[in-house]
Amino acid sequence: MKIVVIGGSGLIGTKVVAHLRQAGHQVIAASPATGINTITGEGLAEAMNDTDVVVDLANSPSWEDQAVLDFFQTSGRNLLAAEINAGVKHHLALSIVGIDIMQNIGYMRAKKAQEDIIKQSGVPYTIIRSTQFLEFLKGIADQATDGNEVHLSDVWFQPIAADDVAAFVAKYALAAPINGKVEIAGPERFAMYEVVAQYLRHANDLRKVVPNGKPSYYGGEISHKALVPAGQAELGTINFEKWWSNQLQKV
């Protein structure tokens, strides 16, 4: 099959491209750097020629409310229009667990808008909603740091390794579209502050994690269970300790 991976040079994209090429498929790792731009439309029509599956892993360079909404709406519409013209048979997008109940956060509103555009397009689709990545733990700690303290919520958190995310994305890209969504998550559930504290200990980072009791995420108040699957989900196999060990091997 010919598969186009939008965002093919990113954290998840590079891994997905590797999986699919190893399985013997023709894969285009699409990004503005390779002349394929979902915002301007550059290179989209050519990339879609004879394409069977499109995997959309594009992400907004800005988290500002209006900018991120504009990004996902523009990118989604341009991409799906090109797919319709080319007769693409399957559109797969990576989304986020819990976006329906976090619509007070601009990024989650934008991801919901992206999902709605996909559902209304008429292109057969699969939406994979993922929990947050283990690779985000440092960023979560950094944005919550005040002096030598990291003030974090006690909301439930079930982070998944990027390697597991990529394996799930590749699996569903090669399967028939489900015209619905599936949820994926890591194998372990923590309070958010607990797993960040664990990460900092392993990294020999002396910052102190302080649970603040506020159910929030990136500035928005959320329910304690918003970031974890509400029902059945496919679980990755890489727990925190295995993930950390893998990070050390890459150094």
Rank of each mutant, 00 (worst) to 15 (best):
G13H: 03
K15A: 15
V16M: 12
V16A: 11
H25R: 09
Q26S: 12
V27Y: 04
I28N: 02
I28S: 08
A29I: 09
S31E: 08
I36M: 06
I39N: 01
G41Y: 03
G43L: 10
G43H: 10
N49M: 02
D52C: 02
V54I: 12
D56W: 00
D56H: 00
N59F: 04
E64F: 02
V68T: 15
L69S: 11
G76P: 02
R77F: 00
L79E: 02
I84L: 15
G87E: 11
V88A: 06
H90T: 00
L92H: 02
L94Q: 07
I96S: 09
G98E: 10
I99W: 04
D100A: 14
I101C: 01
I101V: 10
Q103W: 04
N104E: 12
I105Q: 15
I105T: 08
M108H: 13
A113M: 03
Q114G: 01
Q114Y: 05
D116V: 06
I118W: 09
Q120S: 13
R129C: 08
F133C: 10
E135R: 05
E135G: 02
F136Q: 09
F136I: 01
L137Q: 12
Q143N: 08
A144Y: 08
D146S: 14
G147T: 11
D154M: 01
W156L: 13
D163F: 00
D163Q: 11
A170R: 13
I178R: 08
N179D: 13
G180F: 05
G180E: 03
G180A: 09
V182D: 05
A185L: 06
A185C: 14
A185G: 07
E188T: 10
V195D: 12
Y199P: 13
A203R: 13
P211A: 03
P211M: 07
G213N: 01
S216F: 01
Y218N: 10
G220Q: 08
K225P: 00
A226E: 06
A226G: 11
V228P: 12
V228N: 10
N239I: 05
K242W: 02
K242Q: 15
W243F: 13
W244S: 04
W244A: 06
Q247Y: 07
K250M: 15
